[in-house]
Simulated scan of single mutants.
Amino acid sequence: MSARTKARKRALDVLFAADVRGETAEQSLEAESLRAAARPERASSWPYAREIVQGVIDHATEIDSAIASHSTSWPIDRMPAVDRGILRIAVWEARYNPEVPVGVAVDEAVELAKELSTDDSPKFVNGLLMAIVRDEDAPVS
């Protein structure tokens, strides 16, 4: 597993924890930063995980707006928390991280959904992300 794949999982852990615990992503990020400092064996994946979470925080309004406007069957607050986190990560990578090709962002999100969510989630995540990235009106940084 690549360092970036591990970082995406760590970022998802942070976002999921915030969602489930009812805390802000900033609070969850700070708590994970403290844990990361105490676990040097996991140091290689932490910088990118932190960048992802901070990017999701910085662009939360735009990311959630894109997800909500393209999800015709599920309001964002009704989506499983893990799917919501996966989608936020993928939208951030696709729109705001020029180092990650859009196809890679989508593929990685679908793989996370296959591994960590429901049987229907990979298809849902893929369809929603494809709608978002195909939308020519969607602002890109």
Rank of each mutant, 00 (worst) to 15 (best):
P40G: 04
D135V: 12
P122M: 01
R8M: 03
P98C: 14
D13N: 00
I67C: 02
S65N: 03
E23F: 02
E136H: 12
E111C: 03
N126L: 10
A105M: 05
K114F: 10
V56S: 04
I63F: 03
D19Y: 02
L15V: 01
E93A: 09
P122G: 02
K123M: 10
S73N: 15
E41L: 05
R21V: 03
A17F: 01
K6I: 05
E41P: 02
I76M: 07
R84W: 11
D107M: 13
V125W: 03
E32W: 04
R95C: 08
K6A: 13
K6V: 06
A105E: 09
A60V: 12
E30W: 06
E115V: 11
G55V: 01
S121Q: 03
H70D: 11
D107V: 11
A7L: 05
W92Q: 06
V125Y: 03
L15C: 00
W46L: 00
V14W: 00
D77A: 10
R10A: 10
M130E: 15
I86T: 09
A49D: 03
I76T: 10
Y96P: 01
A25N: 07
G103C: 14
A18L: 01
D83Q: 12
K114Q: 13
T5G: 04
P101N: 13
V53D: 06
M79E: 13
R78K: 15
R4A: 11
A109D: 11
S45T: 07
A94M: 04
V104L: 15
Q54P: 04
R95V: 05
D83G: 11
A81N: 11
D13R: 05
R8C: 02
A131I: 13
T61A: 14
V140N: 06
D64R: 13
D58Y: 00
I89P: 02
V100N: 10
E111W: 09
S2K: 08
R134S: 15
V100T: 15
G22A: 06
S141W: 09
N97D: 15
R88M: 08
S45Y: 08
S65H: 07
A37V: 03
G85K: 03
K123N: 13
A36R: 00
P139M: 01
L112H: 10
V102Q: 07
M79G: 10
D64L: 09
N97W: 08
P80S: 10
E115R: 12
S45V: 02
A81S: 14
A3H: 10
P75N: 13
P80M: 08
A138M: 11
V91M: 05
A36Q: 01
R78W: 14
V104G: 14
A81M: 12
D137I: 08
R8F: 01
Y96F: 15
I86G: 06
A109P: 05
V140C: 05
D77L: 12
P101I: 13
G22I: 08
H59P: 01
A25S: 05
H59E: 11
E108D: 12
H70G: 09
A36V: 00
R84K: 15
D119L: 07
P98S: 15
P122R: 03
S141G: 13
V133H: 06
